[in-house]
Simulated scan of single mutants.
Amino acid sequence: MAPFAILGLDHIVLRVADPARSERFYLEALGCRVVKRQEKLGLVHLDAGSALIDLLPGGEPAGNNVDHFCLWVEPFDEDAIRAHFAQLGIAVEPAKQRFGAEGTGPSIYLRDPDGNGIELKGPAAA
């Protein structure tokens, strides 16, 4: 047994091919905001609720930079989510009930410009 408990996602680091394009995606499509930049590394830290998404130059488009990461979102209104991403020209899969850290609830998958998978997950059914 580990001497600690995981409380949630702290951060994820993604290697990205075009840092400016990826930053725009996370700001405009997901509503993140820049909280810090480390110019020497080209690293940008984005606020994603209680966690951070870090973008680091050096990924390959559609590469295996990461399989996917999951962000808890609320409210989970599939129609509104689909309309938002359609307006941005971003394809999303239909929502399905999937298991996560808080139980089974609705989720939807999409990909960022570098092919990294993103799961947006709503609250678990009571």
Rank of each mutant, 00 (worst) to 15 (best):
K36C: 09
N65T: 07
V34T: 08
V13N: 10
S22P: 05
L120W: 08
A20M: 07
L7E: 11
G122K: 04
I6T: 15
I53M: 14
A62N: 14
P106K: 04
D112S: 03
Q38R: 08
G58M: 13
Q87G: 12
A83E: 15
A5E: 11
P113F: 04
G58K: 07
R98P: 00
P61D: 10
L41H: 03
E78F: 09
E23S: 07
L52M: 14
R15M: 13
D54A: 13
L41F: 06
F76N: 05
K40G: 12
H11C: 05
G105S: 07
H68G: 03
A80G: 09
E60S: 11
G49F: 04
R37C: 03
L120A: 12
K36G: 08
L110D: 09
L30H: 02
D18Q: 02
C32P: 02
H68Q: 03
G103M: 11
L52E: 15
D47V: 04
G117V: 06
R37F: 01
T104E: 15
E102L: 12
P106Y: 01
I90M: 14
M1W: 00
R24T: 09
I118E: 14
I81C: 03
L71R: 08
A124S: 14
F25W: 03
A62G: 13
F4A: 12
R15C: 07
R33L: 02
L41S: 10
A62S: 11
P57R: 00
N64H: 13
E39F: 05
D112G: 08
K96P: 02
K40F: 10
A5H: 08
D67N: 13
R37A: 10
F99Y: 04
L7W: 02
G117P: 14
S22G: 07
R24E: 15
P3V: 09
L56G: 10
R24K: 14
G115V: 03
G103A: 05
R98V: 08
G58R: 06
P123T: 07
I12F: 12
G8T: 00
I53S: 06
